[in-house]
Structure formats: C-alpha cells, structure tokens
Design a protein around this nucleic acid. Structure first.
Length: 359
DNA sequence: TCTGGGGTCCTAGGACCC
DNA sequence: TCTGGGGTCCTAGGACCC
C-alpha cells in the first residue's frame, strides 16, 4: 500500500509585470515612478491604475486606485497606457520557460502560473533549488524578476509567492503550513475579497488562524457552500489540480464613455462598434454563440445586465447587433445618464473542435 | 478615493419536462 | 384539483481574480 506522495506545487508571480516590461523597453524611465493604466488627463481622466512600480508605490500609488487619485499623489510619475500586445509577447516567452519545468502547468493571467513539479524533484529542498534556477533563467533571458511560492498545493504556493516581494522565494513544507498561515490576514486567502473579509471581521475573525479554529457549522450557516471552502482553506487544505486545458466560456467588450451620456444615437453607435469588435474576435477564434448579454452602468454606478439566449448557434454580426440593440432599449431613458455599456457573448461553441471531432 | 476591462464561478428563482 | 421530486436550462446579480 504505497502512501500517495505529497505534491509539490510552485506559484510564479512576475513582479509588477506591466511596469517592469515598460521599464525594460525604455531605459530612460528606469528609476522613476512608473504608472501603467488609464490616461490621467491632467487629473481629469477616468479609469484606474493597472500596475505601478515600487518607486510609484512609495507615493501611495497602487493597483486599482482611480487614476485621478494617482495623479494627485504623484504628478511627476511617468504615465503609460496599457500595451497588451507587448506584454503578451513577453508573457508567451516566459510561459514557455516555465512550462518546460513542469509536469503540469497552468497559466493564470499574463503574469502568473502554477507548476506541478512533483515528479521532477524528490523533496522541498530540491524544489527550492529548482525555483532558484527558474528565477535565474527568467532574469537572464528577460531581465525581469519574479516571486515564487513553493507549497504542497496551489493555495499555499499562491500565498507563498505573495509573502515576500519583489524577487522573493518562499518555501512552505506540509508540516509548516498551519503555522505559516495562522498569523496572516484572512484576505490573503484566495477568494476572500473585500466583502468576505468585512463579513469575517464582523464575526471577530481577522487572521487565518482565527478562521481555522472557528465553528464550521456557523461558517456554513453564514456562507453556504463557500463556508466549507473557507474552513478547508484556513487549514491549508486544497486538493484542486493544476488545470492544463482551459476552454473559453464567454467573450465580452465594454466601454466607459468619456462623459456620461443619455444620447441614444451615441449609445447605439457605440453598441454597434462594440458588436463589430466582438464579432471580429468571435470569427477569428472560430466560435459560435447562443447568448447575448448587454450591460449598462448608469452615472450613479448602478449596473444592470439583460440577456437573451437563441435557440440556435450563430456567428453573424447582424444577430449580435440586432439583439444588443433590442436589449439595450429598456435602459435608454432621457432622464438617466449612462456611464458604461458592454456586450458579452456566452454559450460559446468552438467550431474548430467540431471539425476535429468530424475528422 | 468618484471607481477599467477581461474573465470565471456561484446563487436563487422560475420555466419546463418527466 | 392545490398537490411531489428530480433534473436542466435560462436569467439577473454579485463576488472575486488579474
């Protein structure tokens, strides 16, 4: 009866990826505060900070804050728009390196990945060596640093990579998991965001240790199925596998107007343009769809969605445009200004896959 | 602090079928 | 006539991730 061998998982997280790539591309901005995100427009811009470097963080700038606030905190920073195609290229090269070290590999966004290295190393000591090797190779090939967490599962590896940044390496062996987690704030757990953290705090739960010793039945009562998940996470238990293949479930586009508007012509034209854009991507990636959903956000941030599912799959532009226009009608009111509109296509079906099945 | 854009997953109610 | 239970799909909203 062979005991199932303990898994060894790495989570690799590139440090301030967008800002770091920009700094590498433009030596002249190195050492200065760099903010990647929406156009600040001299303090009048809409949108948020996507990523910033450590120089900018010294001024209080961070991911997710309104760009106008970043402008007030640090007007002298270098403000750059998001250049996705550049980051995608760099990301693809890094992911190729990472994949070569893993039995199983899962990309998480452009700048993170999970690696199952269980069969490549004998123990955590070797895993640490491997992580060092990976960091060295990425730095030599791309001039970028990353932080790596090594643990017995995805949850612990992910929390580990966040523990010491930038250019960090944190190894948490199975027997050390509880002690490692217990003093961290509950928000460090995956899936515990602002809302859940507030709710937990109001129950007197601040640290992961608090959560681990809390009455499970009360957690289930308050959070439903998620309560069980919370409890298991707090114990450092996570049996989820690295997901090698990912199938797209939906594709969407949305736009925030430069100024809130109730001009129905402008709104419908924008909706048509969004539909065209989506249609281009849909056909380029060989998908058909059944469901169209329109999203409207009013000036006061009140947000609504309205969707419709067809009885058949389609990839025609005129279907997207007609349904989107029909669905948005209910929200076009002269007395209400709209801030954002968007369209999502879901119930996707890959026609490429179908061809393979037929072959 | 006046809050982007691209996604995934979950929940809860209702329709509908057997 | 006032009634069950299981299953699936659709819809709207919300939490969360990068």
């Amino acid at each position: 009866m062979a005991k199932k061998r303990q898994r060894i998982i790495l989570h690799v997280d590139m440090d301030q990826f967008f800002a770091a790539v920009e700094e590498k591309e433009r030596p002249e901005i190195r050492g200065k505060p760099v903010v990647v995100g929406a156009d600040p427009k001299e303090g009048m811009g809409r949108g948020v900070v996507s990523t910033c470097n450590y120089e900018a963080r010294k001024y209080g700038v961070k991911s997710g804050i309104p760009i106008t606030r970043a402008w007030r905190l640090c007007p002298n920073a270098v403000y750059l728009p998001i250049n996705y195609s550049l980051y995608q290229k760099v990301s693809a090269r890094i992911m190729t390196i990472l994949r070569s070290y893993a039995d199983k590999f899962e990309r998480w966004g452009l700048d993170e990945a999970f690696l199952d290295v269980s069969s490549r190393v004998k123990n955590f000591r070797e895993a640490e060596k491997l992580a060092q090797k990976i960091k060295k190779q990425i730095y030599e090939k791309e001039g970028l640093t990353c932080s790596i967490g090594v643990g017995p599962n995805k949850l612990v590896a992910k929390i580990g990579s966040d523990f010491k940044k930038p250019d960090g390496l944190t190894v948490v062996r199975g027997e050390d998991v509880k002690a490692f987690l217990s003093l961290l704030r509950v928000s460090k757990l995956l899936w515990v965001g602002r809302k859940t953290e507030n709710k937990l705090n109001s129950m007197g739960i601040k640290t992961i240790g608090d959560l681990a010793s809390y009455d499970t039945s009360i957690l289930v009562e308050k959070f439903g199925a998620a309560g069980t998940q919370l409890y298991l996470s707090a114990q450092g238990i996570d049996n989820s596998e690295i997901q090698e293949r990912w199938t797209r479930k939906s594709m969407s586009r949305e736009i925030t107007f430069e100024e809130d508007t109730s001009d129905s012509n402008l709104i419908l034209e924008t909706l048509d343009a969004i539909s065209e854009d989506l249609h281009r991507e849909l056909t380029a990636s060989n998908f058909t769809f059944k469901t169209t959903t329109v999203k409207v956000r009013y000036a006061n941030f009140e947000t609504h969605t309205h969707g419709k599912t067809l009885l058949f799959f389609t990839d025609r532009l005129r279907d997207i445009q007609k349904i989107a226009r029909d669905l948005v009608q209910a929200y076009l009111r002269p007395d209400r200004k709209i801030r954002l509109i968007g369209v999502r296509l879901s119930n996707l079906f890959s026609t490429k896959k179908q061809m393979r099945l037929i072959d």
